[in-house]
Measured scan of single mutants.
Amino acid sequence: MTYKLILNGKTLKGETTTEAVDAATAEKVFKQYANDNGVDGEWTYDDATKAFTVTE
Rank of each mutant, 00 (worst) to 15 (best):
K10T: 12
A24T: 09
N37H: 15
D40E: 13
L12K: 10
I6H: 06
K50N: 07
V39Q: 03
L12C: 15
D36P: 02
E15I: 14
I6L: 06
N37E: 06
E27I: 07
E27W: 14
N8L: 13
E15A: 08
K31S: 04
Y33H: 04
K4V: 11
T25L: 06
A48L: 12
E15D: 06
T49N: 12
T2V: 13
G41S: 01
A26F: 01
M1R: 12
G38L: 06
T18L: 13
L12M: 13
A24M: 11
N35M: 15
N35D: 11
M1I: 14
L5V: 04
L12Y: 15
K31W: 07
K10R: 13
W43G: 00
V29T: 10
F52C: 00
D36W: 06
T53Y: 10
M1D: 14
T11Q: 10
W43D: 00
T49F: 07
A23R: 14
E19D: 11
L5K: 01
E42P: 04
G9N: 04
T16F: 15
I6Y: 12
W43R: 00
I6E: 04
K50V: 03
T53P: 00
M1N: 14
G38D: 07
E27D: 04
T16K: 11
Y45R: 01
Y3F: 12
D47Y: 08
Y33W: 14
T53E: 05
D22F: 03
N8F: 10
V29E: 07
D46I: 04
G9W: 06
Y33Q: 02
L12A: 08
K10H: 13
V21C: 13
L12P: 04
D36K: 10
T17M: 09
V54N: 01
D46A: 04
G41H: 01
G14Q: 11
V39I: 15
A34R: 00
A26P: 00
D36I: 10
A48M: 11
K4Y: 13
T44S: 13
E19A: 07
T25S: 12
T11K: 11
K28R: 13
T18S: 05
T49H: 09
W43T: 01
V39D: 01
Y45S: 01
T11W: 14
A34M: 06
Y45N: 00
E19F: 15
A48W: 07
T25A: 14
T55Y: 08
T16E: 06
N35P: 01
D22P: 01
Q32H: 06
K13H: 11
E42Q: 10
L7N: 01
L12D: 05
Y45F: 07
V29F: 15
L7E: 02
Y45M: 01
D22K: 02
G41F: 03
Y45D: 00
E42A: 10
D22Y: 03
W43H: 00
G41K: 01
G9T: 15
W43E: 00
E56C: 08
L12I: 13
A51H: 06
F52A: 00
M1Y: 15
Y3G: 03
F30V: 01
V54G: 01
A26Q: 00
T16L: 15
G41V: 02
T17R: 07
D40L: 12
V21E: 11
F30G: 01
T18A: 07
T25I: 07
N37I: 15
A20R: 02
K50C: 06
E56V: 09
L7H: 03
T49R: 10
T18I: 15
I6C: 06
E15R: 06
E27V: 05
E42R: 09
N37C: 14
T55R: 06
E42Y: 12
G41P: 00
D47T: 08
G38H: 09
A20Y: 02
F30K: 02
A24Y: 10
T18V: 14
V39F: 12
T18R: 05
I6M: 05
T16N: 05
T18Q: 05
L5N: 01
E27G: 06
A24N: 09
K4E: 04
A20P: 01
T55E: 06
G14A: 12
V29H: 11
N35A: 15
D46T: 04
F30E: 00
D47I: 09
V54R: 01
K10Q: 10
G41A: 02
N37S: 08
D47A: 14
E56N: 05
T44W: 07
N8S: 08
A20L: 02
W43Y: 02
N35F: 15
K10I: 14
V21I: 12
A51T: 15
T2Y: 10
T16I: 15
G14S: 12
T18E: 03
V21D: 10
K13D: 04
F52V: 01
A51C: 15
A34H: 01
L7P: 01
V29N: 06
A34S: 04
K4C: 06
Y33A: 03
T53A: 05
Y45G: 00
E19M: 13
E19V: 15
T44D: 08
E19N: 13
K28H: 07
T44Q: 09
E19Y: 15
G14W: 15
L7A: 03
L12N: 07
E27A: 10
L7G: 02
G9I: 08
A26H: 00
T16V: 15
D46F: 03
N37G: 05
T2D: 06
D40Y: 15
K28N: 07
N35G: 08
T18G: 03
E56L: 09
D47E: 14
K4A: 05
L5Y: 02
T44Y: 09
T55G: 04
K10F: 12
A23F: 13
V39A: 04
A23H: 09
A34E: 00
D40H: 14
W43M: 04
A23Y: 12
I6D: 03
K10N: 11
T44C: 10
V54D: 00
L7D: 01
E27M: 14
T16A: 10
G14P: 06
Q32P: 02
Y33E: 02
T25F: 07
N37Y: 13
D46S: 05
K50L: 11
Y33V: 05
T11H: 14
